[in-house]
Every structure is written in structure tokens, then in C-alpha cells.
């Protein structure tokens, strides 16, 4: 698998590219997928179009943060080492910046500026969570059994304390037979 990367220059360019993408990943790593696709598939030819799409689908079917699609991409390009390089690249800049910003904000919690920021941003956060649900539900709106499934999930989740795991399992079973 490592035959795709030739020498230190290729490894460095893979690492450097993900370092840069990390700083651009406002709203999550998933928002940088167009740029990742351009680099890995179109520019470097390190993976095929199908492989790229499948990597994202796999990460979404698996538990854990969506960010893990970056690990699958790295794995696809260069195995375990590729995974380590892409994950370190995507995590280092954003985590460092987050820690610094969080500490800076924590010491100024009661200042008018920080209060204006957290109060001003809270409604956007709620709106963004609703938007993610809506956008991810787009495939479900093309088939009524899936749309019904998504609607029922919203109702059950808001009204009861049933574990989401059961709902996911139910979704898998219904989907296997109906969709």
C-alpha cells in the first residue's frame, strides 16, 4: 500500500496538507471534504473517486466522531502510517488553537465581550444542530419509509428517554427490509 507515496516529500505533503485543512475546518472536518477530494483524488491520484466516497460512508456507519473518515482516508492512502499522519495533521492545529482559545475565554468569562459572544452565538448553535439533522436527512426525504423513520425518531427522542442505540438498531432492521 505504501507504494503510492514516494519518499519523504510525499509524506510531508500529505501531513502538511492535513495540517492546513485542520485550520480551515470550521464547522467540522467534514466541511473540508471538497478540498480533500481535490488533493487526494484529482491532484495526487492516491485514491479513486469510489474509494473516497466509500471512506466517508464507512466512517458514518461506524460509531464515533465523523472526523474518523480522515483516518479511513489515511489508511486507504498508506495503511497504518498514513492513518497516523492524516489524523495527527487534522488534529494538532485545531486542538492547540481550541485549548488556547478556551483558556483565554475562561479567564475572561465574566467580561462583557465574552458574555456577548456566548450569548450571541448560542442561537446559531441551536440553528446549526437543527440544520445538520435536516441536511443529513436529505436522502430520507426521497423515500417515504425512511422519512417516516426519521420523523418517528424525532418524536421518540424528544418525548422519551429511550437509548439512541435502540433507535439506530431499529433503523438498521427497518432499512434492511424496506429501503
Amino acid at each position: 500500500m505504501t507504494a503510492l507515496l514516494h519518499g519523504a516529500a510525499d509524506w510531508w505533503s500529505l501531513f502538511a496538507h492535513f495540517l492546513m485543512l485542520s485550520l480551515l475546518s470550521i464547522g467540522g472536518a467534514i466541511s473540508t471534504t471538497p478540498e480533500m477530494h481535490r488533493f487526494l483524488v484529482e491532484q495526487q491520484h492516491w485514491m479513486s473517486d469510489e474509494q473516497f466516497s466509500a471512506s466517508i460512508a464507512i466512517a458514518q456507519a461506524a460509531p464515533g466522531p465523523n472526523l474518523l473518515f480522515v483516518a479511513v482516508l489515511g489508511w486507504g492512502v498508506a495503511g497504518v502510517l498514513g492513518m497516523a499522519v492524516t489524523m495527527l495533521g487534522i488534529l494538532l492545529p485545531s486542538t492547540t488553537l481550541t485549548l488556547a482559545a478556551a483558556r483565554w475565554g475562561e479567564t475572561r468569562r465574566e467580561t462583557r465581550g465574552v458574555q456577548a459572544f456566548v450569548n450571541g452565538m448560542a442561537p446559531l448553535t441551536v440553528g446549526l444542530v437543527l440544520s445538520s439533522g435536516w441536511v443529513l436527512g436529505a436522502p430520507a426525504r426521497t423515500a417515504w419509509p425512511l422519512a417516516l423513520l426519521a420523523l418517528a425518531t424525532v418524536a421518540v427522542c424528544v418525548r422519551t428517554k429511550v437509548s439512541p442505540l435502540w433507535l439506530i438498531a431499529a433503523g438498521g432492521i427497518v432499512g434492511a427490509f424496506v429501503a
Partner: peptide, 10 residues
């Protein structure tokens, strides 16, 4: 696809 629909609802 079924799991995806539930995930969106969640």
C-alpha cells in the same frame, strides 16, 4: 440507509 435516517432524526 435506515440507520442514516435515524441518525438524522436524532
Amino acid at each position: 440507509r435506515g440507520m442514516g435516517a435515524v441518525a438524522a432524526g436524532l
